[in-house]
């Protein structure tokens, strides 16, 4: 599976789609928050795999975020099997937030 620094064009497109999803608590998109670890696009198997985390265990809106990733990507790629895998290792740290994410957190809401 490709980490988000090493994505194919197709996988970058998927990441852009996921970027439309905000974390409902902070209002910043989950890609810039560093929650998406890996994206894999497999044309032959018609399968998209996404590995992601949450900023805190027991996050009250975690399910809703995962559901949203699943729905948005499935809508964009009809006929593909989309698997969203929640992982806790490696643990999320603030260093994973992108510069855009930091700017949005600083005063964007």
């Amino acid at each position: 599976m490709a980490t988000i620094n090493n994505l194919s064009e197709q996988e970058k497109e998927i990441l852009e789609i996921i970027k439309t999803i905000p974390d409902p608590e902070v209002g910043v998109n989950i890609v810039d928050l560093g929650l998406i670890y890996e994206v894999s696009y497999n044309e032959t198997d018609r399968r998209i795999d996404i590995k992601m985390t949450l900023s805190a265990r027991g996050c009250p809106v975690g399910d809703a975020i995962l559901q949203q990733v699943q729905t948005v990507v499935s809508n964009m790629y009809p006929g593909f099997y989309v698997d969203v895998d929640l992982v806790w290792e490696p643990a999320w740290t603030p260093e994973l937030i992108t510069e855009d994410g930091k700017a949005a957190l600083d005063g964007g809401f």
Partner: peptide, 11 residues
């Protein structure tokens, strides 16, 4: 079921 998710446990 994903471990660590609380939404499904919510009352």
């Amino acid at each position: 079921m994903q471990a660590g998710l609380s939404t499904k446990n919510a009352p």
